[in-house]
Design a protein around this nucleic acid. Structure first.
Length: 887
RNA sequence: GGGCGUUUAGCUCAGUUGGUUAGAGCGCAGCCUUCACACGGCUGAGGUCGGAGGUUCGAGUCCUCUAGCGCCCACCA
C-alpha cells in the first residue's frame, strides 16, 4: 500500500458528481465499484484534473539526492506548431518518469518552454503584422492591429518584446493543455520559460562566470552571417543545401612579365575581394609561381600566389582565389597565411562601396577599377555576379562558358539565402581548447541507444570554430555588459563593464551601469549598452541550472544536479546536448546528467520526414481525440529508442483495443471475486495453490523481471511488448481456463486459489501497464484500490513468493493453453460454437506434459466443455478432439 | 570522402550472449450473435530472414565483401 496517497477514495462516491461519460448511474454498478459498461471516453479530463488536484506528480523536495530522479526536460519551442513528434518523444520520457516514480524515486520532472529567439520573433511578426524598429520610442498601451495589415507596423523594441511575451504565454497554455491531455506526469509547479527573469538571471550569471574566468571573449572576426536576419549564426546552426552554381574560368595575368594563370571559381562576384591565389605546395604545375604575383582582372590588384595544403589539386584548375570572405576555407587561409582583408559584402548582403587606390585597395589601374566596380555597388551578390560576369566576358578574362554545377552551399538552418561571412565583433565561448575534455565527457555519458554517442563524438572532433553566442536580434537574453564611450565618442569595447551578479537580470539598453547616469548613454565620456542578445542555445544550454534553481535555491540544486536523464531527439545533439555539456563542464566540471535517451523522428505515414513545406505535418490533437491518449501513447511507446517511427493510426487502434481490454478483463476479474475487496491489499501468494494458477504467476514473475530490466535500460518499448504479450495470453487462455472455477464461493481451495491469482495478476498487470496507459489503469485501480496507481510501487517478482511456480508446475499453463487451442481449432473447423461440447478428448505426449495437463484437467474440461478426456504417454504428441454428431 | 543506422510475411515491426519446424500486430479469409469484452472472440493462409562468400556440428543471430534506403559529419575554389 501507499499510505502517503490514500486520498482517492472510491470513485463511486467521489467522482460521480463530475458527470463524466464513464460514470454510469451508481445503481447500474455491480457491488464492488466496477461499472457495468466501462468506457474510455472522458478519462483524460477526469484523471488529469484529479492528478493536478491531488498533486500526484509533485516533486518531493525533502527527498534525499539518492532517492531523486531528475529529468532535464527539453523545452519545446512554443512558437512552433504542435507536432506529433513532441507527443512521441515526450511519451517516451514520461514512461520512464512513471517507472522511476513507481520504484520509489522522487521524480523531478519540470516542463520548460523555449520562447526565446528568432522563431518567436518571426511568429510575432506574422501573427500581429508588426516589425521591430529599435530606434522608435516605447509606446505605452500599444495595441497591435486586429488583423495583420499588408505593411507591417513598425514598433519599438520594448513593445515588440511585450508582444513576444503575450503570444508565447498564450501558446504555452495550448501546449500545457495538450500535455495534460496526453497524461504527462509533469510537476507543473516547476515550469520555467527561457525568457523568464529566472532564466535570464541564470543566463547572465553563467555568462559573467565565464567572463570572470576568461572563458568567453569578445573578438572581431570573420563571422557566419545571415543577410536576411542580419545576425551572426554559429557553426551548430549551419546546414548544407545543394544549389546550382557554375564554374567560371578566370584569367589572372602575371604581374611581372608575360603569361597568365587561370583559376576557377563559383563566386566571380568576389573577385574584387581577392587577396591571393592558392595552390597545393606539392603541385608541380603551380610551384614555380609561389612567391610571384598576379593581377586581378578588371581591378588590377596585385595579389600573391601562395601555397597551402588545403588547396586541392583535383578540384577545378587546382588553383583557387582567396577572397575575404567566400567561405570558411577562405577564413582559414586568410588567418594562417596572414593575408590582408578586402571586404566587399555588407551585412545586408549587398556590395559595399570601396576606395580603389587607397591603402588596402591599391590597384595598378585605380581609375579603371573604380569604373568597373561602380555599377556593382549596392547590388545583392547574385545580381553583382551577373554584372561582373558580363564585364569579365567583355574584357576577355572569362575563359570559355561558365560550366553549370550543383554544389553544397552553407545556409543558416532557418535561413533562405546562403550565408555570407562578414567581419564583426562577437562574444565567443572558447570551445576549441576544450575538445579533449568534451570528448571524455561524451565517453562518460551513458547513451541510449549507445550508438548515438558517435554523433556527439563526430561533432566535437569536427569543431572548427569557437561558439559564437552573440546574436544581433531583439528578443532574447541581453548581455549584461556596457562599454565606456571615450571623449571622442568612440566605444571602448576592450573595457567592457560587467553587471554585478546581485542586480540580474539587467537590460543594458535601459539599465545603467554603476557610476553612470542615464543621460550619459551614448555620450562622449559616457557609456553604451551591448546591443546584442545571446544565442538561444546560450540559454538552453543551462536548462539543468534554470530548472534546478542554480544559485537561487541551493538546496534544490544540490538535490537535483547533476541530473539523471537528458531526453531529446537526435537532431539536436550538436546543439542542445553539446552546449549543455560545454556549460556544465565549464561551470561545474561535471556532466550535467548521467544518461541521455535519444529519441527518433516521427515520419509521416509514408515514411517521409515531416516538414511544413511538404505540408505533411501531423498535428496530435485530432489523433488524441479520435483514439484517446492511452492509444496514442501506446503507439509512441511502441517506437524503439532512437528509431525513427512513422505515424501509424492502426497502431493507435491496437492501443485503444488494449485499453478497452484492460477495462473489460478487469471488470471480469474483479467480478469473479467472492466479494468486494475490503482489504485494499494484494492477496497473499500463499493462497495460490492450484498448479495452473501457480504456473501463470511464475510466468508473470518473469515478465516483471524482463520489464523491469528493460526499463532500467530505458527500453520502454521492450517493457511494453513483454507486458502486452503476457496480458493477451492471460486474457485469451488463462481467464478462459479459470472462468468456471473462479465462480466458486471461494472457500474451496480451487476457487480461492483462482481468485487470489486473478487479483494478484490484475494488480501486477495494471502496474506494469501504468506507465504506458496511465488513464485506463488509473480508472481500473480506482474501482478497487485507494490512492493513485501512479504512486503505487512497481511490481517485483519477489512479491509472488510461494506463488511463483516451480519446475513441476512450469508447463501447466503452456500445455493447457495448447490443448485448449486444439479444441477451439476442432470446433472452428467443424463450424461449431465455442460453447459446443467435446465428446472425447485424447491427448498423447511426454510424461511431464501429460502430468502437467492432468494438473489442470478440471479447468480444461470446463473451458472446453469436454465430456470425457483420455491421456497416454508416448513419444508422438497428438491431440484428438472428437465432437458429438450434430443434432 | 569519413562514419552511423537499417534491410525478417502484402504493411508496420519483435527476434538479448548462434541451438529444436522463424514470431506478433495490422490487413486478408473463414467461423462464432459465447452469460468481461461486436470499440469483440476464435481459427487459418502468408516469409527461409537484401545479395555473395566464410567460421561452426549448427547462423536471421558472428566475420568479410557487396547492394538499396535513411541519417550524421567533412576545407563545398
Amino acid at each position: 500500500m501507499e499510505p502517503e496517497h490514500a486520498g482517492y477514495g472510491n470513485p463511486i462516491m467521489s467522482t460521480d458528481t463530475t458527470g463524466t461519460a464513464t460514470r454510469m448511474d451508481p445503481g447500474a454498478r455491480s457491488g464492488s465499484g466496477v461499472p457495468d459498461k466501462p468506457a474510455l471516453e472522458g478519462l483524460e479530463a477526469t484523471w488529469s484534473a484529479r492528478w493536478e488536484a491531488d498533486g500526484t506528480y509533485r516533486f518531493d523536495r525533502s527527498a534525499d539526492r539518492s532517492a531523486v530522479y531528475a529529468i532535464d526536460t527539453p523545452p519545446p519551442t512554443v512558437s512552433g506548431s504542435l507536432h506529433i513528434g513532441h507527443v512521441f518523444s515526450f511519451t517516451h520520457t514520461d514512461t520512464v518518469a512513471r517507472f522511476h516514480r513507481m520504484r520509489g524515486r522522487a521524480v523531478f520532472y519540470p516542463m520548460g518552454w523555449d520562447d526565446n529567439g528568432l522563431a518567436t520573433e518571426r511568429r510575432v511578426q506574422n501573427y500581429f503584422g508588426v516589425r521591430c524598429e529599435p530606434t522608435l520610442p516605447f509606446e505605452p498601451g500599444f495595441v497591435p492591429p486586429e488583423k495583420p495589415g499588408k505593411e507591417p507596423v513598425a514598433i519599438s523594441r520594448p513593445n515588440f518584446v511585450a508582444l513576444c511575451h503575450q503570444l508565447t504565454a498564450e501558446d504555452e497554455q495550448v501546449f500545457e493543455q495538450l500535455w495534460r491531455t496526453l497524461g504527462l506526469s509533469v510537476d507543473w509547479s516547476l515550469s520555467y520559460a527561457t525568457v523568464s527573469d529566472r532564466a535570464q538571471r541564470v543566463s547572465q550569471r553563467g555568462f559573467l562566470h565565464l567572463a570572470r574566468r576568461g572563458q568567453v571573449v569578445q573578438r572581431t572576426a570573420p563571422t557566419l552571417w545571415d543577410v536576411d536576419f542580419r545576425t551572426a549564426v554559429s557553426q551548430a546552426e549551419l546546414e548544407d543545401r545543394d544549389r546550382p552554381g557554375a564554374y567560371h574560368r578566370l584569367r589572372f595575368p602575371k604581374a611581372d612579365g608575360p603569361g597568365a594563370v587561370d583559376i576557377e571559381t563559383t563566386r566571380p562576384e568576389l573577385l574584387p575581394a581577392c587577396v591571393a591565389l592558392v595552390a597545393h605546395p606539392d603541385d608541380d604545375r603551380y610551384r614555380p609561381l609561389f612567391g610571384t604575383e598576379v593581377r586581378t582582372p578588371l581591378f588590377g590588384v596585385r595579389v600573391p600566389v601562395v601555397a597551402h595544403p588545403l588547396a586541392d589539386p583535383e578540384k577545378g584548375s587546382g588553383i583557387a582565389m582567396i577572397c575575404t570572405f567566400g567561405d570558411t576555407t577562405d577564413v582559414v587561409w586568410w588567418r594562417e597565411l596572414s593575408l590582408p582583408t578586402r571586404a566587399i559584402v555588407g551585412r545586408d548582403g549587398r556590395l559595399l562601396p570601396v576606395p580603389w587606390g587607397e591603402p588596402g585597395w591599391e590597384s595598378e589601374s585605380a581609375g579603371e577599377a573604380a569604373e568597373n566596380y561602380r555599377p556593382l555597388v549596392g547590388l545583392p551578390v547574385n545580381a553583382a555576379q551577373s554584372r561582373i560576369v558580363e564585364a569579365l566576358a567583355r574584357s576577355g578574362a572569362l575563359i570559355g562558358d561558365p560550366e553549370p554545377i550543383t554544389h553544397p552551399v552553407r545556409f543558416y538552418e532557418k535561413g533562405e539565402r546562403p550565408l555570407e561571412i562578414v567581419s564583426s565583433r562577437q562574444w565567443f565561448i572558447e570551445t576549441l581548447p576544450l575538445r579533449g575534455r568534451l570528448l571524455a565527457r561524451g565517453e562518460e555519458l551513458r547513451w541510449h541507444p549507445p550508438y548515438m554517442a558517435h554523433r556527439y563524438r563526430a561533432w566535437v572532433e569536427g569543431l572548427n570554430a569557437d561558439w559564437n553566442i552573440s546574436r544581433q536580434r531583439f528578443f532574447g537574453v541581453p548581455f549584461p555588459v556596457w562599454y565606456p564611450v571615450d571623449e571622442s565618442g568612440e566605444t571602448v569595447f576592450e573595457r567592457a563593464i560587467f553587471a554585478g551578479e546581485d542586480v540580474l537580470p539587467v537590460d543594458p539598453s535601459t539599465d545603467v551601469p554603476d557610476g553612470y547616469t542615464e543621460d550619459q548613454r551614448g555620450q562622449p565620456g559616457g557609456f553604451v549598452g551591448d546591443p546584442d542578445v545571446m544565442d538561444t542555445w546560450a540559454t538552453s544550454s543551462l536548462t539543468p541550472q534554470i530548472a534546478g534553481g542554480w544559485q537561487e535555491e541551493p538546496e534544490l540544486f544540490a538535490t537535483v544536479f547533476p541530473m539523471d536523464l537528458r531526453p531529446q531527439a537526435h537532431d539536436i545533439i550538436r546543439t542542445w546536448l553539446f552546449s549543455t555539456i560545454v556549460r556544465s563542464e565549464l561551470e561545474h566540471g561535471t556532466l550535467p546528467w548521467s544518461d541521455a535517451a535519444i529519441s527518433g523522428w516521427v515520419l509521416d505515414p509514408d515514411h517521409k520526414k515531416m516538414s511544413k513545406s511538404r505540408g505533411n505535418v501531423v498535428t496530435p490533437l485530432p489523433l488524441l481525440e479520435q483514439h484517446g491518449a492511452d492509444a496514442v501513447r501506446y503507439w509512441a511507446a511502441s517506437g524503439r529508442p532512437g528509431t525513427d517511427t512513422a505515424v501509424d493510426e492502426s497502431q493507435m487502434r491496437v492501443g485503444r483495443r488494449l485499453a478497452i481490454k484492460v477495462l473489460n478483463a478487469s471488470r471480469f476479474t474483479l467480478g469473479r471475486m467472492a466479494g468486494p475487496d475490503d482489504t485494499g491489499q494484494d492477496p497473499s501468494p500463499a493462497a495460490v495453490t492450484a498448479p495452473l494458477d501457480r504456473a501463470m504467476l511464475a510466468r508473470l514473475a518473469q515478465v516483471v523481471d524482463e520489464a523491469t530490466a528493460a526499463f532500467e535500460e530505458y527500453d520502454y518499448a521492450r517493457a511494453l511488448e513483454r507486458t502486452e504479450v503476457f496480458f493477451w495470453s492471460f486474457c485469451d487462455d488463462y481467464l478462459e481456463l479459470v472462468k468456471v472455477r473462479a465462480y466458486g464461493d471461494g472457500r474451496d481451495p480451487g476457487p480461492a486459489s483462482a481468485q487470489a491469482a486473478l487479483a494478484l495478476a490484475l494488480s501486477v498487470l495494471l502496474r506494469l501497464l501504468a506507465p504506458f496507459l496511465p488513464f485506463v489503469t488509473e480508472e481500473v485501480w480506482s474501482w478497487w484500490r485507494a490512492g493513485s496507481i501512479h504512486s503505487a510501487r512497481w511490481p517485483s517478482s519477489e512479491e509472488f513468493g510461494v506463488g511463483a511456480g516451480d519446475a513441476a508446475t512450469g508447463p501447466v499453463l503452456e500445455v493447457a493453453s495448447e490443448v485448449l487451442s486444439a479444441i477451439r481449432r476442432a470446433k472452428t473447423e467443424a463450424k461449431r460454437s465455442m460453447r459446443s461440447p467435446v465428446a472425447t478428448l485424447e491427448v498423447t505426449d511426454s510424461a511431464d506434459r501429460i502430468a502437467a495437463l492432468l494438473a489442470a484437467e478440471g479447468d480444461l474440461r470446463d473451458a472446453g466443455s469436454v465430456r470425457s478426456m483420455a491421456t497416454a504417454v508416448t513419444d508422438d504428441p497428438s491431440v484428438e478432439v472428437v465432437l458429438p454428431d450434430e443434432g
